[in-house]
Amino acid sequence: MAAAEPLLDVRDLGIAFRTGGGMVQVTREVSFSIAPGEAVGLVGESGCGKTVTGLALMGLLPRATSTVSGQVLLDGENLVGMAPRDFRRRRGSKISMIFQEPMSALDPVFTIGEQISETLRTHHPVSRKEARERGIEALAKVGIPEPTLRYDSYPHQLSGGMRQRAMIAIAIVCEPRLLIADEPTTALDVTVQAQIVDVLGDLCSRLGMAMLFITHDLGLVAETCSRLVTMYAGEVIEQGAIDDVLRRPRHPYTSGLLRSLPALAERKSRLPAIAGRVPARGEIPPGCRFRPRCGFAEPPCEAEQPLHAIPPAGQVRCCRHDQIALAGVLS
């Protein structure tokens, strides 16, 4: 995996928002890469910066109130600071995004078909007839029954699962190289979630599309992704091959997340929760940001934490990673 030229290479991505009290740094030094056809999971709890990272990759953060630093290389081309006009040509064709709530992402006054062909005709000079054919094809690809009929349906006529499929169809109709999926199944039932996850996995393998799967559900990452990137308080704190991290997490926060899953604990036992809570923006401690909640904190943790390499392809932001034994999902 490391051998392949990355499709997406995010380097030192920093995002800051303008607020009444000046600029607030929301994420910093976020670096990771995705190979063609690879699915990478981006996890963390609410407020850790995973959604804004996804929005920054898509160039969807408002320019007037936010600044993005660092580099986002897609096929070697830097998207940070790209002129809006140039970005528009790539958004939807090379890089696409789907969101948690399909009802608010779809326009209620246009049919599903109109919304698919809009994307297609923005990027490709195709006739209406051809756009319709390719739109119906996209609906079939995401497993919508009777795609010809559904092409002319309005969003309110579809169930939640079908709407999410329709949104995926819009996102993939131009066959993008990278799909950013931001909590695409959180609003759906588990059996529907299983269907959607199958569709996404199938698209990755059939179209060779890469995916950044943003979620808080580690089970979903285990099932869909080959690599995991964990964020905490705006920083990447660990990344590695999913099975390696599940068996042996190197960061106390990742270990804490895995251990607090009730599905893996003994029934009725006390769950090992992580003490405290994510620091608010103004209260981020110097040094290791997880230090106030960490059971392994020692004086060296008060210093700035660099990323340490974990062979073969992992990284962890913890100076004590080789001194402490952390529980994974099997211990």
């Binding site: 029954p145 079908m162 059996t191 979630q193 285990a222 099975d243 599905a263």
Partner: peptide, 24 residues
Amino acid sequence: LLSAEPVALPADLRPNKRIVLEGE
């Protein structure tokens, strides 16, 4: 329902068969 629940386990320990319900 049991089969649809994603579990955070390495691939070799996850159920290799899964029942995905058809339809709505």
